[in-house]
Computed example of a mutant assay.
Amino acid sequence: MSYPSCTLITPTYNWPEALELLLLSILNQTIIPNEVIIADDGSNENTKELIKKFQSTFPVPLIHIWHEDNKNQKPKIMNKGIAAAKYDYIIEIDGDIIMNKYFIEDHLSFAEKGIYLYGSRVNIQENFLPELFSKKNIHFNFFSKGIKKRARTIRIPYLMNFAKITTERSSKLRGCNMSFWKSDFIKINGFNENLVGWGIDDSEMIQRLHNIEINGKRLKNTAIAYHIYHKEQSRSQLDINDEILKQTTENKLTFIEKGINQYL
């Protein structure tokens, strides 16, 4: 089977312990992405040093794109990262994700034109974190301790033959596990940089994809991702961001003013 060439991109901010496990899980993949871009929203030297350590032996380009810390500017750093991507297909995960070894293979197996993909996540619990980080554990399965939502650990790719196309944005969408064509992302001008603080950026971008008739497909029993517990971020901007999403949905907006075109 031939797969599209792809860039794996992840945002990060001052959590090198989690980023290290993510990078180790990339090295464990059955199919390694063509390049990996770390979109760094202003981390300090510890993250930079970790990335440098991995870059010396990484099998594909490991690119660190950084801008100065100015509170949460994830849409901006993700636009800069995706603008730099050399490959047609973008797989987006979060910097606190450990991927099952078939994660990249699953995204690429089910990639198709006119479609974006979105998966779910298994939660790694707070009380397991000391062991997780001390042992640098990247291997999980249904019976592993320290996880919640065990049913999501079961991988049965055959069931994707019955996956339905979703013509509306799903409430189950999570930016920590999704993929799309770079050309589609550019058509809608990428992430909306008017969104600030935590939340909504992935949903608002995906809504504009639906508005240009790019539909979704949910990755069930495939593309298994383990999410490392962390405290919730401030939701102080959520009302403003919700209003932007509402306008995008109701007015069927397809293009935003402040997006990826600034970096292309």
Rank of each mutant, 00 (worst) to 15 (best):
M1S: 10
P4I: 05
T12R: 06
E17Y: 12
E20W: 04
L23D: 12
S25N: 06
N28R: 15
I38D: 12
E49V: 09
K52Q: 14
Q55P: 00
T57W: 02
D69K: 11
I77N: 06
A83R: 05
A85P: 12
Y89L: 00
I90M: 09
E92C: 14
I98T: 09
Y102D: 13
I104T: 09
D106N: 14
L108E: 07
A111H: 02
R121K: 13
V122P: 05
N127C: 00
L129V: 10
P130E: 08
E131D: 14
S144D: 04
K149N: 15
R155Y: 00
L159Q: 00
K164E: 08
L173C: 02
G175E: 08
S179T: 04
F180C: 01
K182F: 03
K182T: 03
S183P: 00
I188W: 04
N194T: 04
N194R: 08
G197V: 05
I200K: 14
E204Q: 11
Q207L: 04
N211M: 07
N215P: 00
R218S: 01
N221H: 15
S234F: 05
L238T: 02
D242E: 14
E243T: 09
K246C: 04
T254D: 07
Q262T: 07
Q262I: 07
Y263T: 01
L264P: 00
L264S: 14
